[in-house]
Amino acid sequence: MASPIEQFNIKPIAHFELAGIDVSFTNSSLWMVIVVALLSLFLIGGTRKSASVPGRWQVMVELMYSFIAGMIRDNVGKEGKQYFPFIFTLFVFVLGLNLAGMVPYAFTVTSHIAVNFAMAAFIFIGVTLVGFAKNGAGYLKLFAPSGVPMWLLPMIVLIELISYCTRPISLSVRLFANMLAGHIMMKVFAGFILSLAAAGAVGMVGAVLPFTVNVLLTGLEILVACLQAYVFTILTCIYLNDAMHPAH
């Protein structure tokens, strides 16, 4: 029987190399392309008519727009508007990849730490650059909150510095671990169904239990897929807010 972690194997489809670097098209790349194609179809199709009285499809796109616009307004403020395209893309991209992973036989791109860490690192470097560009050396005030006693300051600065530098790790590992654990659990319970069913009539009846669990797990994993996309995006907004207003 297939191992529960076999689903995470990267399988090359076409081999490419660019300046000695492996840029092969793999099952991971395939699902990124599929998700981006479907998202583009959904977003362009939904705004195709741009009707003043929207249809259902347009309402879905508009709801996503207002959702992300509201998130940026509440967490970053008015100045955050210039990052709207990036935040919106980030949200729909992660959400699309997470949800695509729920399709049977699909590959869950966000279950790979490499992809998540690349996104988190990009956000971390971007936010740090924005912070220094907007505030200059004043951005360092982020590490020294006002109102802290002098004798406590060195420790606070150290803690703040560590927590700041671990942001890309926590951001990427959170998404990776959630996707990994959920998909392993579903595969393990699916394995139980097959093992029990193979064990005769009693096993057939007993297999109903892991089957029920798997149905419930599927619902839970869809929730987790949406929730983690939301968490990933809102944390990016909060980091961006720190970069805009470091003195908190």
């Binding site: 490499a114 992809v115 690349a118």
Partner: peptide, 13 residues
């Protein structure tokens, strides 16, 4: 595979 994952991440994103 991390290079091809990141490469295709950059392209698709």
């Amino acid at each position: 595979s991390f290079t091809n994952q990141i490469a295709w991440l950059l392209i698709t994103f």
